[in-house]
Design a binder for these strands. Structure first.
Lengths: 341, 1352
DNA sequence: GTTCTATTTAATGATATAAGTAATAGAAAATCG
DNA sequence: GGATTTTCTACCGACAATATCATTAAATAGCCA
């Protein structure tokens, strides 16, 4: 028996979406699932456990379940109006609804370690975890930070990534997708695209139609061949376009802390060639790196043109720098409170 | 009033010019009658007003100045206003009210920038460019009135540039310029002065025969009389005047300006010197050197020949213009100057002991050599180089001797002050050089170790870079045709900042840059460095400041350069004339460098410094683990993120930081802003007062031209005399450093340990170990936060220590000196010392280090107050006076111990609330108590009298609130009331009641309410603290009681409600007034001025509100709340772009801040008035007076007098219903303003409006907007104000949606307050009305007269 | 020599940046349809 | 016109985001009559 899928009529009655947007059109969802071809990874869906963060109205959740019937499908949703909606629609379904806050780290430690409500299997990092999948919708304009934090969790191998290379299907604003997916020399290339490149293998799966599409490189679009759906397939209709990406963690081996410092600082002046920009890494950086980097072509490049491998190379030189600055003290403290009676 | 005889310049000018331009000798023989026919009497005001563009929106409305009537001496007693008309129709950049004139605002900015550029170009002799700037200025229509001043600037520079340009040619040029290039511009007396000066200073070979008639001709052309020409002392030098009087005899002594008359009188004709040699040789010298030469001449006569110097410093300088003390000067100063010999003579004539005698006879009374004790003391040479003037002064037995001593000291200090303000950079440079040479003798390692030696190296490396840059700029600027397209980016930038960069001696710029950067270490929240934005602007400002004082010095020495007489009396005359001169110079200067230029200059210099400043560093090679030595830049430019925003930072290398921590930082204190050695220049004008060579403004305006406009108008109207009086009393209080306390602090400091609020010296910070990378994100986060907290603590400790270091070093420099704090005001009128770091507003330590210079015998009541003071410092200030005395008397042993063994004893003083001040008091008390007759003890300790919650005192007086007044000691009582304790009691009562009703929270909290818990909230309540804010305050107090933070916060929330309730209950009428002020501010800031440019109404029905809240204090000071939306822009500099605000942008008001700001600001403006009134009165009564806002200080013996004054002035202030007066002022000022409100639809009036709108809609073919209605109402007003009768009558017939309200009386019944039915209200423009004043209570402020605890 | 247009440059505005919403959370003002 | 979202959060002294890209306005060159 399949779970009934909420229709747009019911969905449109909902008022509060907290800035998040959801694809409601089941037809597009079908196309997406076809494209994702998840059974290739999850050869035995019966053993699959799915964590659905911010499921919203649950259209995707229900359709997922109907398609694959995983062992466990848990939805984490705390926002009251949406939680009520989920309850009303899926109370008696096999979908598990948990009223927790996906933003809060403790949600996961409680669920996994304390209450053991959702316990994924730890798998080695030579392959994508084939019994654990996370689906999330972080389409809120103000919630981009959460995505970035999750990304850095891949680098730290903590949070859900302690269970191995877990695949994540992630809805996000199209602009965020554009930034994340940008490749060297592209306009949107920024630190977070380097992070994406360093830790994951990410593909654009689907994206709503609109101006934002123009920001993507045409070659890349050709490569990913995403499903382009109409902006009308999203609810609420107002707001900016959204996109779905598939994120697969990759293996990496470098000094993350120093790499973080190096990329962060270099990407500030991303159009300044390396032979000049290195001074912003610390006292006398230019002199040091100009003597260490033997490849004169590399020195002519700008940070925006660098691949992650090149960043790793620079990081290596950075760690070998005898006078390298203290990377821990890389912050400012805004005026703390003083003055009293 | 007698009006000076004006001549209509419009009609005479052409004829005069023709006369002047006539060729040949005719010019020099003007027939007397031909000139006299040129004088046509005409009313100049007519011409002026008709030629001015008289846009009403561009000038402050006459309604804007409701000021107090000065005719009645008791200003506060008079409720009638005198609406002064600031009918200043001239264009003036500051004379703009924000509410209007968006376009002229941008023009203002343009003019300001052109001015600063013009000045810069003239200084750099870029005459061509200057001329083209003049042409641009000429095109600004509003500027015409003042244009001649700019032209004069140009002409003066031209004259200096071409000293041998024949006068005929000069005259031709003038005629040509004014007739063709700048039509309609007429010369003024200054122009004539320039011509006369030029004529007088032409090479003597020029036909001096013709000199006299030429000059006579110019004199006769005077616009406002010969006197006016002669008053231009910045043009005409003393020797010029001397020639005019004595040689040419074209003028008489009586026509001279009063300040210089005595000088010329005493200059016998024979001794007059005209120094033409100086004229020929000295043109490209900087002011400093010129001045130096003057100084030397003043002191040794003109025979002293400057020996050519081989000093490397001089060699290094650009075109030999380094303003440094020549080496041979040292030899010279060893010889006494006559003036100084007299001082020494005077001093030695006093009753001195042998040691003092020896000190004085050894002491070099030379200002250059003995500015301040800034040299290290380790060498033990102190006794030779400095004198403890304070000790000598104190040891003098008689008043006469003291006076004589002070007078001699003053003459010496006048010179030192001048050096202090002008030669500080040279002094620093000298010190570096000295240290470098010493270190060099010891070897290379010690150069690296010695900071100053290193700085000297940087200086020498940087200098050529700057010079190169300057010469780049110069060649670029002097290029004939500037092909903008062909320029690269660097060069086009140079074009912008170049003119400014060439103004100042490169060496000075080096020193300033280095010092500024060192000073800014660890500021702006940066761990080891500073914010780039701040750095570039600071350097830019410092450069500008240097330039300004150089300018003043330069023109001063120019004018007085030939004055050469040696008697001390004469010297005093000159000093006096000079100070008058300076005052007027500062007053005249209106030019400021644009912020963008400052930033650019700063960045250029800083990037050079970054480039050359190196430190040697050592690190560990991560691979080989070997120690590596190397060299790294001392400064590095980079970025850091804060909440996702980039922040440009300038990092300082750790090695240098460590070195700085152990260093005496006196050198980097901005020397222009140290305390003064002589009385500050009195405030006579809104921009003249305080330091002698550094310009400061009366009001600390927040880059708001609006504030300046009102201040300026008030100042020019002569309305704020009482403010000046009060401020001058504050500035004239002489202080000295408390040596006893200083010794203790110094000992503690050198120890390096933490003591009281001095944090200990820390080398490295200790961080907790990092958790493994794959720990839960929450764990990683808490660790990060820990690190941040520790780092913050570390850096705040360090900057704290650094700040203490500054204070201490300044104190050390001023040991034994007589010092003054020049003051100015914040925008509400509260007074602050101009000198940062070390002043009596500082922390406990700063205050403890300061005592009055003058001593006064304790007399009959002094001892009592000294004892009370100690008790107050220990926090026992809310018990009756007898108990406080008893407290002190019960600790006599402790006092003795504290005074005699401050660190080795029991350290009782450290337990005080304000330990350092307590220690200071202990020292005095200890001495007093040893005396047989304590009344004879001469006390220097300032005794404080603090208001009990001063803000609430004013509120209570305003509201006539008997209960409140009682609580804050306005009502006589035998025991002081403790507001905080009382509130606590009330809260306690409330809680008990609640607890009885079964309230759980109340049960837990009810016994935990102390005075301390509520104190901060009661205090901040005056400032309008919100519920949330108060909750945090209380939570902070409760946190020790509860373990759980969450719990503590919950309780706090609950408690806050009760505390607020209690305060409201207790100070009910105060709150009503607070609310009234808030509501009024809200309405005003949401109102629309009709004559506003429609552009600000572009959003249809949502206008930008432009009116800020403005009022006048009882002293006549206009106060403008500067809260507006800020608009900042990115400005490109060498290092990065910086984000700075454009002061001339016209921004809408920030209604919220206007609203929350008015209640506290109004109250502060009152307490400031009270303070200034009291200060003036105390000054009159011969008291030494100081204040920290609501804490008033004087000698122990004078406390009783002061208290009487305080009460009298408070009564005087509040005898008038100030709230009523404020409302009247508001009503008057915002008379024709409208607001957007809602009108009941079902009324006749509403129907009429609908009809008008319908008609209008038809005409326009679209829906009407409120903007349209404003437009028509504006039209109507314009017509009504038109001088043409027909216009007026059209206006009278016109009906607009606004005019309909004119006759409506019962608006209240028609207007819908917030809410109402949806369809019953419609948006209309309503006249602005203010809420009703809450009723005043029965408290009569006059009972205060007998309240001894009012201030205690 | 002028006027008009094409092209380049300067000026201005918009957007992204990092990555626990700084320590906190509930009211008041502003916005939007 | 009313609900939702954003913006605060006690006053003053006090002190500050920036790099890059897109778009628009202005200026210059060129062109031709």
């Amino acid at each position: 028996m399949s779970i009934p899928i909420p229709g747009i009529k019911d969905i449109s009655k909902l008022k509060f979406f907290y800035g998040f947007k959801y694809l409601w059109n089941p037809k597009v969802h079908d196309k997406i699932f076809d494209k994702l071809d998840l059974t290739k990874t999850y050869t035995n869906p019966k053993e699959l456990k799915v964590l659905d963060l911010y499921p919203g109205v649950g259209v995707q959740s229900a359709m997922f379940y109907n398609r694959y019937s995983p062992q466990q499908y848990s939805m984490i949703e705390r926002r009251s109006s949406l939680y009520k909606f989920l309850q009303a629609n899926f109370e008696d379904s096999p979908l598990q609804i948990l009223k927790r806050d996906p933003y809060d780290w403790s949600t996961y430690s409680n669920l996994i370690d304390k209450e053991r409500v959702f316990v994924p299997e730890v798998q080695p990092s030579d392959h994508i975890n084939d019994s654990f999948l996370t689906v999330a919708n972080v389409t809120g304009e103000g919630s981009e930070g959460l995505i970035m934090q999750w990304l850095s969790c891949i680098g730290n191998k903590n949070w859900l990534y302690r269970f191995g290379k877990m695949k994540m299907l992630l809805w996000m604003p199209s602009t965020t997708a554009r930034k994340l997916l940008a490749r060297p020399s592209m306009r949107s290339r920024s630190k977070c695209s380097v992070v994406r490149e360093a830790f994951t293998d990410t593909k654009l799966i689907a994206i709503s139609d609109g101006d934002e599409l123009k920001g993507f490189d045409s070659k890349c679009l050709e490569e990913w061949d995403p499903i382009v759906f109409s902006a009308a397939d999203i609810w609420p209709t107002k707001g900016k376009p959204i996109a779905l990406v598939e994120m697969n963690p990759t293996n990496f081996d470098f000094d993350v802390e120093n790499w973080d410092y190096v990329t962060r600082h270099l990407m500030i002046l991303k159009r300044t060639p390396l032979n000049i920009v290195m001074d912003s890494l610390g006292h006398g950086g230019q002199l040091y790196f100009n003597s260490r980097i033997t490849d004169k072509e590399l020195l002519k490049k700008c940070p925006i043109d660098l691949t992650n491998d090149e960043f790793i190379y620079i990081t290596k030189l950075f760690t070998e720098w005898p006078f390298k600055p203290d990377i821990l003290m890389d912050f400012v403290d805004m005026n703390q409170t003083e003055h009293s009676g | 009033m007698l009006r000076p005889v004006y001549r209509s310049v419009v009609k005479t000018s052409v004829l005069q010019k023709r006369l002047l331009s006539s060729k040949g000798s005719k010019l020099y023989k003007p027939s007397p009658d031909s000139t006299s026919t040129l004088i046509i009497n005409d009313d100049p005001l007519v011409a002026a007003s008709s030629s001015s563009s008289s846009s009403p929106s561009g000038i402050i409305n006459s309604n804007d100045f409701p000021l107090f009537n000065k005719s009645n001496k008791n200003t506060t007693n008079n409720l009638s206003y005198q609406w002064k008309n600031a009918s200043n129709m001239e264009f003036d950049p500051f004379n703009k009210s924000h509410a209007s004139a968006i376009t002229s605002m941008t023009r203002t900015r343009d003019v300001m920038q052109l001015w600063s550029l013009l000045e810069a170009c003239l200084q750099s002799n870029l005459m061509k460019r200057a001329f083209s700037i003049l042409e641009s200025l000429y095109l600004t229509p509003e500027h015409k009135q003042r244009f001649i001043e700019d032209y004069n600037m140009y002409l003066d520079a031209f004259s200096k540039n071409e000293p041998n340009f024949p006068i005929i040619k000069m005259n031709e040029k003038l005629t040509n310029d004014l007739e063709t290039s700048f039509k309609d511009i007429n010369y003024n007396d200054k122009t004539l002065a320039i011509m006369i000066h030029h004529a007088l200073n032409l090479h003597p070979t020029a036909s001096s025969m013709l000199l006299s008639p030429t000059i006579s001709a110019y004199l006769k052309m005077s616009v406002n009389g010969i006197r006016d020409i002669l008053s231009n002392l910045d043009i005409l030098t003393i020797s010029d005047l001397s020639i005019l009087v004595n040689d040419l005899k074209v003028i008489s002594l009586s026509q001279l300006p009063t300040s210089v008359k005595p000088i010329l009188e005493s200059l016998a004709p024979s001794s007059t010197l005209v120094n033409n040699i100086e004229n020929e040789n000295g043109f490209n010298k900087t002011a400093a050197e010129k001045d130096l030469n003057i100084e030397k001449k003043l002191e040794f006569g003109r025979d002293s020949i400057r020996t050519p110097s081989l000093d490397p410093l001089r060699e290094a300088s650009l075109d030999g213009s380094m303003g440094v003390l020549p080496k041979d000067a040292e030899k010279l100063v060893a010889v006494d100057t006559i003036g100084m010999r007299v001082i020494r003579h005077t001093l030695l004539g006093l009753s001195l002991n042998a040691q003092q005698r020896e000190q004085i006879s050894k002491f070099k009374f030379d200002a250059n050599d003995n500015v301040l004790n800034m040299k290290p003391t380790e060498n033990g040479e102190e006794s030779n180089t400095s004198i403890n003037f304070f000790e000598i002064y104190n040891s003098l037995p008689t008043l006469e001797e003291k006076r004589a001593f002070e007078s001699a000291l003053n003459v010496f200090n006048q010179d030192r002050q001048k050096v202090l303000e002008n030669r500080a950079t040279e002094a620093a440079r000298e010190r570096w050089k000295h240290d470098f040479e010493e270190a060099k003798a010891r070897g290379d390692i010690s150069i690296e170790k010695n900071l100053n030696a290193k700085l000297w190296k940087w200086y020498n490396d940087m200098l050529p870079l700057i010079k190169e840059e300057i010469s780049h700029c110069k060649s670029l600027l002097s290029e004939k045709s500037v092909n903008k397209r062909a320029l690269n980016k660097v060069d086009s930038n140079r074009l912008g900042y170049g003119p400014y960069l060439t103004l100042i001696d490169p060496g000075k710029m080096c020193v300033i840059t280095i010092l500024e950067l060192l000073k800014l270490n660890s500021t702006g929240g940066v761990i080891e460095g500073m914010r780039t934005a701040r750095a570039v602007i600071s350097v830019g400002k410092a450069i500008e400041m240097e330039f300004r004082s150089e300018q003043i010095l330069k023109s001063e020495s120019q004018t007085f350069r030939d004055v050469n007489k040696k008697s001390p009396e004469f010297k005093k005359l000159v000093q006096n004339a000079k100070s008058v001169f300076r005052s007027s110079q500062i007053e005249q200067s209106k030019i400021l460098w644009p912020q963008t230029i400052r930033a650019k200059i700063g960045s250029v210099l800083i990037s050079m410094l970054i480039h050359i400043a190196k430190v040697s560093v050592q690190g560990i090679d991560p691979i080989t683990k070997a120690k590596v030595h190397g060299e790294a830049p001392a400064f590095a430019h980079g970025y850091q993120y804060h909440n996702g925003s980039k922040l440009g930072v300038l990092k300082i290398h750790k090695t240098l930081i460590r070195q700085l921590n152990g260093e005496r930082l006196i050198a980097s204190v901005q020397p222009q802003l140290l305390p003064m050695l002589v009385e500050p220049k009195p405030w006579v004008n809104w921009r003249s007062g305080g330091y002698h060579y550094t310009q400061s403004t009366l009001l600390r305006t927040k880059d708001s031209p609006e504030q300046v406009a009102y201040l300026k108008a008030a100042s020019e109207n002569g309305d704020i005399g009482p403010v000046y009086d009060g401020l001058n009393v504050l500035g004239n209080t002489p202080w000295t450093v408390n040596r006893n306390v200083f010794d203790v602090v110094s000992q503690v400091w050198n120890n390096g340990e933490g003591f009281l609020d001095i944090p200990c010296a820390q080398e490295e910070m200790v961080l907790p170990p990092a958790p493994p990378r794959n720990s839960d994100p929450s764990i990683l986060r808490t660790w990060k936060l820990q690190v941040k907290t520790i780092a913050n603590k570390f850096s705040s400790d360090r900057s704290n220590r650094c700040d203490t270091n500054y204070k201490l070093e300044i104190a050390r420099a001023f040991l034994g000196e007589k010092l003054y704090f020049p003051h100015n005001l914040d925008f509400r009128g509260r007074a602050y010392p101009l000198s940062p770091h070390f002043n009596h507003l500082g922390n406990d330590m700063s205050r403890g280090l300061l005592i009055f210079w003058h001593g006064k015998k304790l007399g009959s009541s002094g001892l009592k107050w000294l004892k009370i003071h100690l008790s107050n410092l220990f926090g026992f200030d809310k018990i009756c006076l007898e108990d406080r005395i008893a407290f002190t008397e019960s600790h006599l042993k402790d006092i003795k111990d504290s005074a005699e063994h401050p660190l080795t004893g029991e350290r009782w003083w450290t337990t005080a609330d304000k330990p350092w001040q307590a220690l200071a008091t202990c020292f005095e008390l200890n001495k007093v108590l040893k005396m047989d007759n304590p009344e004879e003890f001469v006390s220097h300790q300032p005794i404080h009298q603090d208001g009990t919650c001063n803000g609430l005192q004013h509120y209570a007086a305003l509201g006539g609130d008997v209960e409140g007044a009682t609580q804050v000691n306005l009502v006589p009582n035998d025991k002081p009331q403790d507001v905080y304790a009382h509130v606590a009691k009330l809260v306690q009562k409330r809680l008990e009641i609640a607890a009885e009703k079964g309230d759980e929270n109340a049960k837990i909290l009810k016994d935990k309410i102390t005075r301390k818990v509520v104190k901060q909230t009661v205090m901040t309540n005056v400032y309008g603290v919100t519920y949330v804010g108060a909750t945090f305050q209380i939570a902070k107090q409760l946190s020790p009681i509860f373990d759980d933070r969450k719990e503590s916060l919950d309780f706090s929330k609950y408690l806050t409600k009760h505390v607020f309730g209690a305060i409201r209950e207790l100070f009910h009428s105060a709150h009503l007034i607070q609310d009234w002020l808030g509501e009024s501010a809200k309405r005003i800031s949401k109102s629309i001025r009709l004559d506003v440019d429609e552009k600000s109404f572009k959003n249809g029905n949502k206008p930008d509100f432009m009116s800020s809240v403005i009022w006048t204090t009882p002293l006549g000071l206009p106060i403008v709340q500067p809260y507006r939306e800020e608009s900042k822009k990115q400005v490109e500099t060498n290092l990065q772009t910086v984000f700075i605000s454009d002061p001339f942008a016209v921004n809408p008001v920030n209604a919220r801040r206007q609203k929350t700001g008015l209640p506290p600001n109004f109250i502060h403006s009152l307490d400031a008035s009270h303070m200034l009134l009291s200060a003036a009165e105390c000054g009159k009564r011969g008291l030494d007076f100081a204040s920290v806002h609501d804490s008033y200080w004087t000698h122990a013996s004078d406390v009783d007098t002061m208290n009487v004054v305080l009460r009298d002035q408070f009564i005087k202030l509040h005898e008038v219903d100030l709230v009523m007066r404020l409302k009247e002022e508001f009503t008057q000022r915002y008379k024709s303003y409208v607001k957007i409100g809602k009108l009941k639809r079902a009324t006749d009036l509403a129907q009429k409006i609908i009809n008008i709108r319908k008609d209008l809609s038809k005409k326009l073919g679209r829906n009407t907007t409120l903007a349209d209605e404003i437009y028509f109402e504006k039209k109507r007003q314009e017509l009504l104000n038109s001088p043409l009768l027909e216009d007026k009558s059209i206006g009278e017939k016109m009906i607009t949606t606004v005019s309909l309200f004119q006759d409506v009386k019962d608006l209240d019944t028609l207007e819908l307050e917030n809410g109402g039915d949806e369809n019953s209200g419609m948006s209309v423009l309503l006249p602005l009305r203010l809420p009703e004043i809450p009723p005043k209570g029965n408290f009569d402020v006059r009972v205060l007269k007998d309240s001894q605890y009012f201030f205690s």
